[in-house]
């Protein structure tokens, strides 16, 4: 397992690395705000035509949009987190070196991604969210406890997001094509997370399916906790179950991949 003191340092390193891209961060804030604007208007029209859709009122739908934009970079819905680097290391074979390091591969990358995510939340998430709250009617809670619960759920969402992307990245051990994997990650990440439409607004059976998939733990569940549509323990059980399951599968796949690397000699 190595020294536990390594991981906090990796978190800080991940944060710092992203913090150096000031211009890119500002550009991202701008883009997230523009996309938020476009989505807000379409949702307003949708909820005007069908008030109460998915149990949300208009203000809740608007809040959902800006939350999605705020978490977009943090949870890397369309990729762009640690997995890009991990896949590149697998492709070039440098991963063989990592496997012999005295640190746990999965934990190491998790720490790295936590650092990145914390920066993205602060650097890219806060401004679009505040912009949305200032210029549109939103449904934000007044109690500090709800915000605390929300932060807790957000951390769990990050772990699930990490676990999903870790699995996608490890597929690079078997698939040569990084482009295809990135696309699959993007399609599922945007659609199944509810970035294009809240999952509770999905119709019928499709809605029931997407709401129990792990992607629901990323945006739908935190949104529901923030807006009082879901109890904290319910959310944490759902997210926790998926996190544990996916991380465990990740470890299994990782050991299979390790054997493969050892057998092939990298």
């Amino acid at each position: 397992m190595g020294s536990w003191r390594v991981y906090p340092a990796v978190v800080v390193g991940g944060f710092r690395r992203y913090a150096t891209y000031r211009v890119a961060t500002a550009a991202g804030v701008f883009t997230n705000t523009v996309f938020g604007l476009i989505l807000v208007y379409t949702y307003l029209a949708l909820w005007e035509a069908r008030p109460g859709l998915g149990g949300y009122d208009q203000a809740q739908a608007v809040t959902y949009v800006w939350l999605g934009q705020a978490l977009f970079a943090m949870l890397a819905f369309q990729g762009g987190g640690f997995e890009v680097e991990l896949m590149e290391r697998i492709r070039t074979g440098e991963i063989a070196v990592d496997l012999y390091r005295p640190v746990d591969l999965q934990l190491w990358w998790l720490a790295n991604d936590v650092g990145r995510a914390v920066f993205q939340l602060l650097g890219r998430g806060v401004v679009p969210f505040v912009f949305g709250a200032l210029f549109f009617p939103t449904a934000l809670p007044g109690e500090v406890a709800v915000w605390g619960a929300f932060l807790l759920v957000l951390m769990a969402a990050l772990v699930v997001s990490f676990a999903i992307r870790y699995l996608f990245a490890l597929s690079a051990f078997w698939l040569l094509d990084g482009q295809g994997v990135a696309q699959a990650l993007m399609v599922t990440g945007l659609f199944c997370s509810g970035m294009t439409l809240p999952l509770n607004a999905f119709p019928g059976g499709l809605g029931e399916v997407v709401r129990v998939l792990p992607w629901a733990a990323q945006l739908q569940v935190p949104a529901d906790v923030l807006m009082g549509e879901s109890a904290l323990w319910e959310a944490l059980v759902f997210q926790g179950a998926w996190a544990v399951a996916l991380l465990a599968v990740g470890r299994l796949v990782q050991s299979a991949a390790t054997r493969r690397v050892v057998v092939q000699g990298g």
Partner: peptide
């Protein structure tokens, strides 16, 4: 399409 599964017209 998903939106129109819930409504008949948008705007």
């Amino acid at each position: 399409l998903l939106m129109f599964s819930q409504v008949d017209a948008l705007g």
